[in-house]
Design a protein around this nucleic acid. Structure first.
Lengths: 202, 202
DNA sequence: CACAAAACTCGACACAGCGTCGATGATCAC
DNA sequence: GTGATCATCGACGCTGTGTCGAGTTTTGTG
């Protein structure tokens, strides 16, 4: 009990500022297009001057990268279908539904990231790694099912995984502000497309 | 014969300058990332000062839009499959092959355009219209085949058309500097994917 | 071929956003 | 309380964009 009375240090001022910048970024990137948000806006939103921003982050994209990394962690937890064998339609639906919900909740950040990869090599390689890891997990699942004979496709597993990613990105990219019904519709379309691509006609 | 000796006026100086800007742009956009090309580069490449550039085009993206419009005209001529009924695998292959070749030949411009839509509303809406028209043609073909019973998909035709576009963009986006073999591979993968999505297992 | 209108050119200017530097103020550890 | 580290900010310089207006060149027409 010797330490009980001692006030815990808690997060330092700097930590709180950094969090404030991230909060401001989350808000701004959610409601405005990426390029229209300046470093000045970010700093202002966190209650510091533009120059002070540089004490915490080297660039605007570094902030976005931090945000993306958090979103990705959440997303990565939803990949239950990848661990199953065969079509596993219920698990596929679950995976698609949770990821779609996450996508919708973070639509602003994700679309800013899609924009910013064009300009920032740092973010591009970060997202490249994320996607590669995702595609690799999907490809492994497909390869497994090709081996056990459930998957009927002649397309190489990694190409097919890329295709599925492309469809998902395109469809989920329209999810900003979508209703639950629209979300379920997107999930249904995606589930059918994946089933057809990997396992052939139902 | 009265006019024979009279020198034809030909394109005015301004027309030639405009063409020179477009030529310079084609070259620069083909070998450098979009944002790294400045208006100064474009003007310099056409042999005029930066300010004179503005006499011909209001923005950098206006030049890219002009370039894209030309590429699109070529691309639009390759859509033979859309006019056929049923799977028509040979026509599908022809369409995919010509469009893949065109894509590879204009890879620089197309990837610059993909970059620039993020920043330019003008280009975004131009490309939006282009894509919408393409998707509409694809959707009509799918709808026709749903009506005549060859297409088995339950996915709404326009959604399916969007998916096909997404796959095509993703796959052809890797085609810069690809060999003929790689190109054929891409076409094969795409053909199978489309066949599976629309008509079910072969 | 003269000459006015139009087509075209460019230097000077103003501006937005980024990034650096160094001087200064706040905080913490002992 | 004091030295070291943490944090803040104003001043500065840079790059790229876009406008203005004063010039020059080209072109059609009499």
């Amino acid at each position: 009990m010797s330490q009980v009375t001692r006030r815990r240090t808690g997060p330092s001022k700097g930590d709180r500022r950094e969090a404030a910048i991230l909060d401001a970024a989350r808000a701004l990137f959610s409601e405005r297009p990426y390029e229209s948000v300046t470093i000045d806006d970010l700093a202002g939103g966190a209650g510091i001057s533009r120059t002070s921003f540089y004490f915490y982050f080297p660039t605007k994209t570094a902030v976005l990268t931090a945000l993306m990394s958090h979103v990705w962690d959440e997303l990565a937890a939803s990949h239950v279908w990848f661990d199953a064998d065969g079509p596993a339609p219920e698990l596929l639906r679950v995976q698609l539904e949770t990821s779609a919900t996450l996508w919708r909740a973070n639509a602003g950040i994700l679309s800013c990231a899609a924009t910013a990869v064009a300009t920032s090599g740092e973010l591009r390689s970060f997202i490249g790694r994320i996607k590669a890891r995702y595609d690799e997990r999907a490809a492994e699942k497909i390869r497994r099912d090709q081996d056990n004979g459930t998957a009927t496709t002649a397309i190489p597993a990694h190409r097919l995984a890329e295709m599925i990613s492309a469809i998902r990105d395109a469809r989920y990219g329209q999810l900003a502000g979508a209703s639950d019904a629209e979300l379920r519709e997107a999930v249904g379309d995606l589930a059918e497309a994946i089933d057809r691509l990997v396992y052939g006609r139902a």
